[in-house]
Design a protein around this nucleic acid. Structure first.
Lengths: 205, 205
DNA sequence: CAGAGAATCGGACCATGGTCCGTTTAGTAG
DNA sequence: CTACTAAACGGACCATGGTCCGATTCTCTG
């Protein structure tokens, strides 16, 4: 387990220069607007820079890559999601059995995908994906639930396998090209989880 | 089931002009050589075109995209793999129980990934991935095995979920960044399959 | 062999993600 | 207010995947 829990560093460095902070905000606003207006796949970085009234260099120094920018745009939603997972109501939050929590987790992710698949796809391209705090939090969450349900299993491997089934690229293919209804995708997830996670028997006799 | 079984169209159109055939061969040779020499991630399409003594336009007209070229380079190996699956020895080929065949399938794929992950990654980028004959054959194969093992399940959804765990990007991350040994990855796959596919009981009493 | 016509060729061209570095500016010290 | 420095800016620049279209070459027919 070489994976220390790290809360995602969503807040910017507080000792940031005023113009830098202003520009970050401008960029995020422009990106959010353009992404929702025209779909994340149809907006170039140049356009975002121009819409934000900022040079391209600034855009990339702030956010590093297209994927990171997309992730930043999603970060507010993601923060809420993590909040719900850690402290929210069951079955998403603590208090429900692990398998139910896993099912709720996947269904929530699928709902997000239904609304923002393109943006998530943009955020998942490139090697950033697996090192991004959001992914690591999801992995850790699934891992802990798996471990809770079945302490003997290789939770790390299983967690990443399950998460792979919730990737944006696969989602888009299934949902758009194969036209699989969202409800069936959720059923598929439930089936996958039920098979993977043995329902914890209340008390072994 | 909107998915008719199609054998992959690996052979080129036989009524292809002589120069076209010669150039296709040149391109494939050059690509194969450069990919193995320097790693698929470090070779640009321009370099391949130049090494093949061919214009860039020709390269792209023949193969359409970088991903397709990578897939074409892999096609010989893939053909052998399909042969082994359809007509080879058990447990990969027919004759073994479905769960064992599934395990063998994944382990073989993991072995290929171990040797050619970069090339497979190149072949898996872009929307081509899910429509490529190789992917469709893999999906169909996994689907049929799942159906054989458990006729009541949603084999289509489960098949794609399982295949997602064998994606090249995830493999590279686990194997290189997280330094998970190949053997553990195979164990993970076995565990995933065992949980997903109930061992068919010989005779229900 | 010659001519016609279609298929192919190839490199100039485009779009876009990402980098570099000379210039500008915010913050600070005197 | 001025001077100074480190940080930030921004647009020219680069690499690369992919497209286009006039020039070329193959093949078939007479």
């Amino acid at each position: 387990m070489s994976d220390p829990f790290e809360l995602p560093q969503i807040e910017p460095d507080s000792l940031e220069r005023a113009d830098a902070a202003r520009n970050r905000e401008r960029i995020l606003c422009a990106a959010r607007r353009l992404f929702t207006e025209r779909g994340a796949g149809c907006v170039s970085m140049d356009e975002i820079a121009e819409a934000a009234g900022v040079g391209k260099g600034t855009l990339f120094r702030r956010f590093g890559s297209r994927a990171s920018l997309a992730a930043a745009v999603l970060s507010e939603r993601e923060r809420g999601f993590q909040e719900d997972i850690i402290r929210g109501e069951p079955p998403l939050g603590p208090g429900a059995p692990a398998d139910e929590r896993l099912i709720a987790f996947g269904e929530a992710l699928l709902d997000t995908l239904e609304l923002h698949s393109e943006l998530l796809l943009a955020a998942e391209t490139g090697p950033v994906r697996y090192t991004h705090p959001a992914y690591r939090v999801h992995r850790l969450h699934v891992m802990l639930l798996l471990q809770e349900a079945d302490p003997g299993c290789d939770a790390e491997m299983l967690a990443e396998a399950l998460l792979a089934a919730l990737g944006a690229e696969l989602f888009i293919h299934q949902r758009r090209a194969r036209e699989i209804p969202l409800e069936r995708m959720k059923q598929g997830w439930r089936e996958l989880v039920r098979r993977t996670v043995p329902r914890a028997e209340p008390e072994p006799v």
